[in-house]
Amino acid sequence: MSAIFTGWRKASASGEGNCVEVGAIVDAPRRARDVLIRDSKNPSGGKLCVAPAAWGRFLGSLRT
């Protein structure tokens, strides 16, 4: 089973300021295997790779 990178995306509300971009590596049928995070101002720099469950918990903590 081959993995596919979904590409980078950022929040539409981020504008041109400081923000991060998020991408995912998915297996068929489009189930996230890894979530990747990078600094949009330094796209060739380091990337953080986290499990989808960890990313979900992080997003959940922002909503409370």
Rank of each mutant, 00 (worst) to 15 (best):
E16I: 00
S40A: 10
G56N: 13
L59M: 12
F5E: 03
A11M: 01
D34T: 12
D34K: 05
E21V: 08
V20E: 03
V35N: 09
L62D: 05
K47I: 10
E16K: 11
G15M: 02
E16C: 02
V22F: 11
V50N: 09
D27S: 09
S2E: 13
V22T: 09
K10Q: 06
I25C: 00
K41G: 01
A32G: 13
S44D: 06
A53H: 06
L62M: 12
V35W: 03
K47E: 09
C19P: 00
T64R: 14
G46Q: 04
A3F: 11
G56K: 15
A54W: 10
I37L: 11
F58T: 09
G7F: 08
R38G: 13
R33Q: 13
D39I: 13
S61H: 13
G15V: 00
V22G: 01
A11T: 11
P52Y: 04
A24F: 14
S40R: 01
S2H: 00
W55T: 04
S61N: 09
M1H: 08
G15W: 03
V22Y: 05
G60H: 08
C49M: 03
S61V: 06
N42C: 05
A51C: 02
S61M: 08
V20R: 10
G7E: 14
P43A: 06
K41Y: 15
T6M: 09
C49K: 00
M1E: 12
R57C: 05
N42I: 03
V22I: 13
I25G: 00
C49D: 01
S14P: 10
W55E: 04
N42T: 14
A53L: 07
V35Y: 11
K10W: 10
V35H: 02
S14Y: 09
G7T: 11
S61K: 12
R31E: 12
L36A: 09
G23W: 07
V35G: 05
G17C: 04
A32Y: 11
L48P: 04
F5N: 09
I4Q: 12
T6W: 03
G23Y: 03
S14V: 10
R30P: 05
G56Q: 13
G15A: 09
V22N: 03
